[in-house]
Write a protein that binds this DNA or RNA. Structure first.
Length: 690
DNA sequence: ATAGGGTTAG
């Protein structure tokens, strides 16, 4: 009577369990029920609990493990479920531990066990253990199981052992589409794109197997990484033909491919055509825009995403923060900071570092430091961000202090750390410290200086007006000086005031053009050099030479953010809706600066493609001045103005803005392509050297 | 019950 009753309960509960375990709460109820009715040790019952907890998205591996530990003799299915659960979790090593435990307790692994264990090995790149599993497979004889073989190939491929993967692949008796996907994916991940394309062709030819979505996805990724737009387009039209276009993962990868291959238009068309978009769709498009220089557009699209009430994750926020950083959009950056807190976005070093960087690049080191000081985990990226940020903002001594702190916290500096440190020394005029740091980089940290480090040293000497040392340093470099090093010297000379060094400067200027004949900036340097000496014919000659070689001058852009909206200007811009007011303010600026005196209008760095008589005007209407004019009319008197420029601020504007900061009583922070200028009361933080 | 997939930083 009793036994038949318990049998009844068992049957009912098993059926009930099959559909019941859908949430943690319900699973706990089921567990309590099983315990109460002494059914817990029934394998079939407890395995239902385990499989939900270990495999479901909403499960809980830890909890599964606790239940697992209470099972006296787990059967094969339960072992396999646990091993599988861990193999796809962030802790694949646990999977291997359990595999060992299983063998120790005398249970012989089956083909399922081996597949799961191999997945764990693949993810851990544990080839040694993977080979041990391989031996077991041969010993027991699972060589004919295509699942086992596929995961073996995957394991070898992921561990970088292409020979093993390839041998198995060639010897395997039956290959299915996954086999092909695994071997293709391995080659794509290894950077062997041509081989991947060859294999892609062969899968049809030799095995008559049609590619599926995963195949196409891997191939699209190969195009992305190798910049192969042509093949990418073919893959896109193929996936439309066979109906893969509803696969959201694939579409995301294609958007990413278009963006990284420079075809933003096709990316946008696909993005617009998608009916369902996930967070990765948005991330691909938004970061794609930002990476191609469309910063404002990427922020606008992020705004649309907000409008559609999609919760941002930590990855997309990194993208938009870096867009804000590039154009100095502080208000939007602050708003994103707010979103992080409001949505309780996962704490993440990458994100917090991007936040610090955004504040640093907007010239708000105080806010950057606040975030930095609250960060729980910091890595070398984080330290480099704060050190570089301080150096760029003219707080060189603080940068050096943070380096000491970094060392005391046991973080190893890398090559980028030293770029920041050498910049810091340059800004502060600490020549000896710079030399000492340069030496310790090589001798203490065993980091070989790159050409950029030499460039920093040349800059350091020039700032200290040690032209001879700079020259000697260049001559003694173990690697050949490149155009960057020479351009640094030339720029340095022109900042010191060319004077007696004119001949040297001219020689260097010619050298720089020889070394990099395709870069407009190099011609501009030499041309300006002549203009500065009133050698207008030479100056024009260089400009003509540049034009005749078909090299366009990169237009100078300036950005200013007003009430969370970023406005963009080019020289002489008349496209802004408030153009009339802006130009009225420009007139006012000119009048008051002139009245105050101290600003000598120079015509050295003018835009040559404008007629001679307009020289002074074009210089006068440089984009940074237009941006400042908008700033003056749209903010309250006395408040801070921030602008960002994509090129270097020219001499004339620099001198103009200095006086302007005094007469308008404004603190103006201008970021140009290499550093910050904090203008205040008639002077600038760069000490007129940039 | 089994294998294969994309986005972010100095």
């Amino acid at each position: 009577m009793i036994s038949s009753n318990s049998k009844w309960i068992k049957n009912v509960s098993v059926n009930w369990l099959k559909t019941h375990c859908t949430t943690i709460i319900k699973t706990k109820q089921a567990q309590a029920f099983l315990l109460r009715n002494h059914l817990f040790q029934e394998k079939f019952a407890s395995s239902k609990l385990i499989s939900f907890l270990a495999l479901s998205e909403s499960g809980n591996l830890n909890y599964a493990h606790r239940i697992f530990n209470q099972i006296e003799n787990p059967d094969m299915f339960i072992w396999n479920t646990m091993i599988r659960g861990y193999s796809r979790s962030p802790y694949p090593f646990e999977s291997i531990s359990l595999y060992n435990l299983m063998i120790q307790s005398g249970v012989v692994p089956d083909n399922f066990t081996c597949t799961f264990a191999l997945t764990a090995c693949a993810r851990l790149q544990e080839i040694k253990f993977g080979r041990r599993v391989h031996c077991v497979i041969v010993k027991i004889g699972f060589q004919l199981d295509v699942f086992v073989l596929n995961s073996l190939i995957q394991m070898y491929g992921n561990c970088g052992s292409f020979d093993d993967a390839r041998t198995l692949f060639d010897e395997i008796p039956v290959r299915d589409v996954v086999t092909w996907n695994v071997i293709i994916g391995a080659h794509v991940n290894g950077g062997f794109y041509q081989e991947a394309f060859d294999l892609f062709k062969k899968m049809r030819e030799t095995d008559n197997i049609e590619p599926d979505e995963v195949t196409i996805l891997s191939m699209v990724s190969a195009c992305t990484q190798s910049g192969n737009l042509e093949q990418g387009l073919i893959l896109h039209s193929y996936s439309n033909e066979v109906g893969f276009e509803k696969n959201i993962h694939l579409c995301n990868a294609i958007i990413d491919m278009y963006c990284k291959c420079g075809d933003l238009g096709s990316a946008q068309i696909l993005f617009e055509s998608m009916i369902k978009r996930d967070i990765l769709t948005w991330t691909s498009m938004i970061s794609g825009l930002a990476n191609s220089g469309y910063f404002r557009e990427s922020l606008v699209l992020f705004g649309q995403m907000q409008f559609e009430k999609i919760k941002p994750d930590e990855v997309i926020l990194v993208s938009v923060l870096s867009a804000c950083a590039q154009i100095g959009a502080l208000d939007q950056g602050k708003y994103i900071h707010l979103l992080m807190l409001r949505y309780k976005v996962k704490q993440d070093v990458v994100l917090e570092t991007a936040l610090v960087d955004m504040y640093a690049k907007c010239g708000s080191m105080d806010l950057g430091l606040q975030v930095f000081n609250k960060m729980k985990t910091k890595n070398v990226f984080t330290w480099n961000t704060i050190i570089g940020g301080l150096a760029m903002n003219g707080q060189g001594l603080d940068a050096l202090m943070f380096f000491d702190q970094m060392k005391s916290e046991g973080i190893m500096p890398d090559d980028v750390t030293f770029i920041g440190l050498l910049c810091a020394c340059g800004h502060t005029g600490l020549v000896d410290t710079g030399l000492e740091i340069f030496r310790s980089m090589k001798e203490v940290y065993d980091i070989q200086p790159r050409i950029e480090h030499y460039g920093c040293m040349v800059d350091l000497f020039c700032r200290a007006k040690l032209v001879e040392d700079a020259l000697a340093f260049i001559e003694n470099m173990p690697i050949r000086a490149n155009e960057v090093v020479w351009a640094t010297l030339l720029l340095g000379l022109s900042r010191i005031g060319i004077g007696e060094h004119f001949e040297l400067a001219e020689k260097v200027g010619k050298r720089v053009i020889e070394l990099e004949p395709d870069s407009c900036g190099r011609y501009v340097l030499l041309s300006n050099l002549y203009a500065g000496k009133n050698q207008w014919d030479d100056s024009l000659r260089i400009r003509k030479e540049m034009k005749s070689r078909g090299i366009e001058k990169i237009p100078g852009y300036s950005w200013i953010e007003v009430n969370g909206l970023v406005h963009q200007f080019i020289a002489g811009d008349r496209s802004h809706v408030q153009t009339d007011e802006i130009y009225m303010m420009m007139e006012e600026m000119r009048r008051r600066v002139k009245l105050a005196g101290g600003h000598v209008s120079g015509t050295a760095e003018v835009l040559f493609d404008i007629e001679e008589e307009e020289k002074e005007n074009s210089l006068y209407f440089h984009s940074e001045k237009l941006a400042i004019a908008l700033g003056l009319i749209s903010t309250t008197p006395g408040s801070l103005i921030r602008i960002v420029k994509n090129l270097r601020v020219c001499n004339d504007c620099h001198s103009f803005i200095k006086v302007l900061s005094q007469v308008f009583n404004r603190h103006i922070i201008a970021r140009d392509r290499s550093r910050f200028h904090h203008f205040s009361q008639g002077s600038c933080s760069c000490m007129d050297f940039w």
